[in-house]
C-alpha cells in the first residue's frame, strides 16, 4: 500500500496562484459563493485568523465547504436524491486574509445534513485553514449561534468539551437585513479554536 504524500506548508506566496484576483487572474473559487438566484438566506461569515500572541495572521488561506440551503452537498457521494441540488451553488469558497487577519464569505446558510446513524447535524460550514507556519492544514467547523436547538443535539458539537464548544459557534448579528456571523479562528492560546482529526 503506497504511503500518503506528506503535507507541506502553503507558505507565504500562494496568493497569486490560489486567490489571484489581485494579480488580474481568475481563481477557481472566491469568497462570494451565493449568486442572485441561489436558494436560501444569504449570510455573511467573517472573522480573523489569530496567532498564539493574539496577533493577526495576514497570510492565511481559509477554505470552506458546505451544503446548500436544502442541506444537500453538490457531490456524487451525497446519495439523497430527494434533497435538491442548487445549480447556482457549488458550496466551496476560498478567502485569503488581509493585513488584519480578516477573511469573509458571502454565502447561504446551509441546511441540515445527516450524520452517523442518520442523526441530524446542526447547520454547519466545514473549514480548512492553511498558513505559512502550518506544515499541514487544520480542519474546523462553523456552527451558528441562532441554531441553539439544533446545536444542542449535534453529534460533533457534543464530542467537544463543553468549555471549548463555543469556539465552534459564530455569533450572529443583523446588518442591513442580513445576518452576519462572526467566527474568529484562534490557532493557539486563549480561546484556541477546536480543530478536528477527520
Amino acid at each position: 500500500m503506497p504511503g500518503q504524500t506528506p503535507s507541506q506548508t502553503v507558505g507565504p506566496f500562494f496568493a497569486y496562484a490560489l486567490t489571484p484576483e489581485l494579480y488580474g487572474r481568475q481563481g477557481i473559487a472566491g469568497n462570494v459563493m451565493a449568486g442572485d438566484d441561489t436558494q436560501g438566506d444569504v449570510i455573511r461569515v467573517e472573522g480573523r485568523v489569530i496567532d498564539g500572541d493574539g496577533q493577526p495572521v495576514p497570510d492565511a488561506l481559509v477554505e470552506v465547504w458546505q451544503a446548500n440551503a436544502a442541506g444537500r452537498y453538490r457531490h456524487a457521494d451525497d446519495p439523497r436524491d430527494d434533497v435538491p441540488v442548487d445549480g447556482t451553488f457549488t458550496g466551496f469558497g476560498r478567502s485569503g486574509t488581509d493585513a488584519d487577519g480578516r477573511f469573509w464569505f458571502e454565502t447561504v446558510k446551509p441546511g441540515r445534513v445527516p450524520g452517523r446513524g442518520n442523526a441530524p447535524q446542526a447547520p454547519h460550514i466545514n473549514v480548512a485553514v492553511f498558513a505559512r507556519g502550518m506544515l499541514t492544514h487544520a480542519y474546523t467547523r462553523i456552527y451558528f449561534a441562532d441554531e441553539q436547538e439544533a446545536n444542542a443535539i449535534d453529534p460533533v458539537l457534543n464530542t467537544v468539551d463543553e468549555a471549548r464548544r463555543g469556539t465552534l459557534i459564530g455569533d450572529a448579528r443583523p446588518v442591513h437585513g442580513r445576518t452576519v456571523y462572526c467566527f474568529d479562528i484562534r490557532l493557539q492560546g486563549d480561546g484556541e479554536t477546536v480543530f478536528f482529526d477527520v
Binding site: D51, G52, D53, Q55, V57, A131, R132, G133, M134, A138, T159, V160, R164, L187, Q188, G189, E192, T193, V194, F195, F196, D197
Partner: peptide, 10 residues
C-alpha cells in the same frame, strides 16, 4: 505561534 496546543478532536 501558529500551531494548535490542544489535541485535535477526533
Amino acid at each position: 505561534l501558529r500551531s494548535p496546543k490542544q489535541d485535535l478532536v477526533k
